[in-house]
């Protein structure tokens, strides 16, 4: 799935530069960074409210390309800068995590 489609489905706004436009192939939802490290697959989009610099660090380690920040939680400057640097797209969405998951439901879950 293209980033542009994700932005549209979650009614969100990309806060990273336009050249950060990854493809994603599945979705994962969590606010626990250790959980993301342990379970989220590569090339997934992470649905979370963790608007924190460490989220980018974990995404980079786990090979996650895109983050949907729910409830319009803003990405702090240091987080946005790190995301741009690491090529992780951030989409800020007004939806809840549940609603965002439903919006992206055409994506398969992470294989277990």
């Amino acid at each position: 799935m293209e980033l542009a489609e994700i932005v549209e489905l979650v009614k969100g706004t990309a806060v990273t530069p336009p050249d950060v436009a990854p493809q994603v192939s599945c979705a994962y939802s969590s606010d626990l960074l250790s959980d993301v490290m342990g379970h989220a697959p590569e090339d997934s989009v992470l649905i979370t409210i963790q608007n924190h610099l460490n989220t980018i660090a974990v995404c980079t380690l786990a090979g996650i390309n895109a983050i949907v920040l729910c409830h319009n939680r803003p990405a702090p400057d240091d987080m946005a800068a790190a995301a741009a640097r690491e090529g992780v797209a951030i989409v800020v969405s007004p939806l809840s995590q549940y609603a965002a998951a439903l919006a992206l439901s055409s994506l398969p879950p992470a294989s277990r």
């Binding site: 626990l32 250790s34 924190h52």
Partner: peptide, 16 residues
């Protein structure tokens, strides 16, 4: 959204 919590607290579901 302002927090001084550390990662340990975040991992317990707090510090948002």
């Amino acid at each position: 959204g302002t927090s001084t919590a550390n990662d340990w607290i975040r991992s317990l579901g707090f510090g948002a």
